[in-house]
Simulated assay, not measured.
Amino acid sequence: MLLSSWLSVAGICALGAMSPGPSLAVVMNNTVNHGRKAGILTAVGHGLGVTAYAAATALGLAVVIAQSALIFDVIRYLGAAFLLFIAYKTWVSTQQVKQQSEPSADQDKAIKTPGFISGLMIAALNPKMAIFFLALFSQFVQLDAGLGDKLILALTAGTIDTLWYLLVAWGLATPKVLNWLSLHQKKINQLFALVIALLAATIVFK
């Protein structure tokens, strides 16, 4: 694989990861409501989901999703439903932003698991990723490229996605930001809930 092709793919993946959308909203929501660990686990889960879609494209499986309107719509509607669920949980949440004190072992587990799962699910329930990677690979991957080259691109996409959302989670969870967020927790939760619900609506009606 040419270095220029790899750099082009990496740049496009970075732009795709940084574009605002449901994934960014969920990572921010988990970080604000449950702290840095939840944000980090959300980022890791989402990165694994992106890697899986990219790998599926390399193996030819994503073609099935892209060419089947039924499968595409089922995944799309499940994704919208999951976003609405997150919006509801956020709206009714009374949980405060975590301060500097360490949570108990049970609390820590309760924070980590939903964070990782929500990140993974948001990526997995986004069928547009299949189309994105099909278009991307068709432009920069040669027809005779080996499976190894394709998997390198898949890992590149997943790594870039994970690093971006790790940066988002880390930046939001600084002490000064958390202290400010804790003073406006209720309004912020309501805002996140509305934004996530609107994003779900755009998925359904787009």
Rank of each mutant, 00 (worst) to 15 (best):
N126Q: 09
L151K: 05
A145S: 00
Y165I: 02
A62R: 03
A58S: 14
H46I: 05
S118P: 03
V92S: 15
V50I: 14
L151V: 13
T94V: 10
F133D: 13
F133L: 04
A62V: 11
A62L: 08
T57V: 09
V141G: 01
T51G: 07
A54H: 03
A157T: 03
A62D: 10
L155N: 02
N33Q: 15
I131P: 14
L153K: 07
L153S: 06
L147M: 15
T159C: 12
L163P: 09
A66C: 05
G146Q: 10
F85V: 13
L143R: 10
M121V: 14
T90W: 01
F85G: 12
L147A: 13
V44R: 04
G35H: 03
V26A: 10
A130M: 12
A80P: 04
A43G: 08
G79N: 01
H46N: 09
L155Q: 00
L155T: 04
Q95V: 12
V32Y: 04
P114D: 01
A43R: 05
D144F: 00
F116K: 01
K112V: 12
T90S: 09
A58H: 08
V63R: 13
R76T: 14
T31E: 09
A135P: 10
L61Y: 11
I71A: 15
T42W: 02
V92H: 14
L125H: 03
F140A: 09
D106P: 03
W91T: 02
A52S: 13
N126A: 12
D106V: 14
N126W: 01
V50P: 12
I152N: 12
G158Q: 00
G79F: 00
Q142S: 15
S101F: 04
E102M: 10
L41P: 04
L151T: 06
T156F: 05
V27M: 03
Y77N: 14
M121A: 14
K112P: 08
A135N: 15
V26S: 09
A38C: 12
N33L: 11
A58Q: 05
G119M: 01
A124I: 07
E102L: 06
I117E: 03
